[in-house]
Amino acid sequence: MSKLIVNGLVYHHLGPFSLTVEARETVALAGPSGAGKSLFLRALADLDPHGGEILLDGRSSQSWSGPEWRRRVALLPAESQWWHDKVGEHFNRSPVNRSSASARLAVLGFEAQVMNWSIARLSSGEKQRLAILRLLQNQPTVLLLDEPTANLDPLNTQRVEKLFLDYQQQHAAAMVWVTHDLAQGLRLGGRHFQIENGQLELVGKGQVH
């Protein structure tokens, strides 16, 4: 079980924010651009200095090293980065769970061949979907997703939503999903929050799965 507790989080003069995300819960996060949604996720992943405390299963983020924490509390940035020439070089040589890794590849519409593709030929949508697979390799227990479907077509949006919801069920993961799409927020299920004027406000609740 992976319950995420945020207690009085303060960053970049915003906050304090408090929020609890249960295992298997999805919190949808909206708000005007510049309100600090991405910064909120960055603070949760301990990429920016922040005040307050973040607990995972009752343990403080400080009790892990930065990299250990970020392997558990995984942030998917709005725009992914690629630094080697080939796709496969960005993936672990020996994934923890090979069969589920290749199953996920298929769910997002890729064949195993994709690992030999060069980064230069990827479209932005392909990069985004591969970035998702790359992130899930670490088997994180908390997912922080910054508009993961913003540049995907409806078919791939559907695939990505299904992938994340399945993963969440299998790994009892807690999920924070930044989206501007109200319909998507409803499909995801859990509570809806809005960040505005430095406040985190509960604005509604989606349908329960």
Binding site: R70, Q81, R134, L135
Partner: peptide, 11 residues
């Protein structure tokens, strides 16, 4: 951005 993306992946 590349460095931070690598940190996000737990490097």
């Amino acid at each position: 951005q590349i460095i931070e993306n690598r940190l996000m992946l737990g490097e």
